[in-house]
Design a protein around this nucleic acid. Structure first.
Ligand code: FES
Ligand code: FES
Lengths: 154, 154
DNA sequence: CAATAACCGAGTAATATAGTTGGTTATTGA
DNA sequence: TCAATAACCAACTATATTACTCGGTTATTG
């Protein structure tokens, strides 16, 4: 599964794209500036997502990226899989042979965990995340006041 | 979270330990041979688990490792956390500051996913996994001498 | 006292991530 | 026509982590 900054960057960038695509294509430059992610690194991530069919790019002035599907029809799993490759955390990739050609003692566990993980991420759409962070976003847009209201930790 | 071979090794090794501790302490040498994991690497993993209080080691002939708690009171989360460090996959480690001092757009997602992940792994005990893989193992158990089926040389 | 086996620190090799550099297309609009 | 824009692309580097090795030192047993 390999849940790392890469996947986080991709999801964060896609949320940014969702929030801004109302005005037409969104440039990587703007995402880079908004989210503090290296432009070239974004290019690599977006290349993968484009190849996965999640987004389309248009060149030239006024160009940028747009989502190919509705925000509610793109899941977080789609994004993570696109940039991070597998969402299967078994070492054997399902072949049940990671220990000297045989199934290792913990295969069943990782297999089940992979399913759980996928189920969770596939069940959340970009749209949901976008709307959640919308509030935060709008405020920052108007004036950057500290936002202490995000207490889902409570 | 960083679910990698390291965590898999640790869990696999702990299942092996569970299955064999009936006869007293289990040596890393035997686990190394059974599971095909480097002895020195096992030592490093077991050092961490010892420091986490999951196991105890006794030196000298007849020595080895034993579990400090009942197999049903050790969760997979305990093991993974012990060797793999965090089960929190947020970049900010809960501080909500990973993007330029502020909470990034996807923080909520990773936070929730961490909880799910932890919940799942904390809900599975070593005992359950041990009993699941028990069938495979019992045959080998009856034969105390060399285990040809798992031998590296075959 | 010699074999065993945990314990320890420092190293190395391979791999992956994160990011850089230096381009080339394609599109726009001045 | 031309310059600016922005996607697109390949290859490279730097860093971190994983997985593993090496060379020991304790402690315990018979
Ligand atoms: S993870 Fe599938 S056999 Fe070990
Ligand atoms: S993951 Fe917590 S602020 Fe980004």
């Amino acid at each position: 599964m390999r849940l790392t900054t890469k996947g986080r960057y991709a999801v964060t960038a896609m949320i940014d794209l969702s929030l801004n695509q109302g005005h037409g294509p969104v440039t990587l430059r703007s995402i880079s500036q908004n989210q503090g992610i290296s432009l070239s690194y974004l290019e690599q991530l977006f290349a993968k997502m484009r190849k996965s069919g999640l987004i389309s790019g248009t060149r030239g002035p006024g160009g940028g990226y747009i989502l190919n599907r509705d925000v509610d029809r793109i899941s977080i799993a789609d994004i993570v899989v696109a940039v991070d490759e597998p969402l299967d955390i078994t070492e054997c990739a399902g072949r049940e042979d990671c220990q000297d050609g045989r199934r290792c003692l913990s295969h069943g566990l990782w297999s089940e965990l992979s399913d759980q993980l996928y189920g969770f991420l596939a069940g959340i759409s970009l749209g949901e995340l976008m709307r959640q962070s919308g509030l935060t976003r709008i405020r920052e847009e108007s004036r950057q006041v500290e936002v202490p209201s995000l207490a889902d930790t409570a």
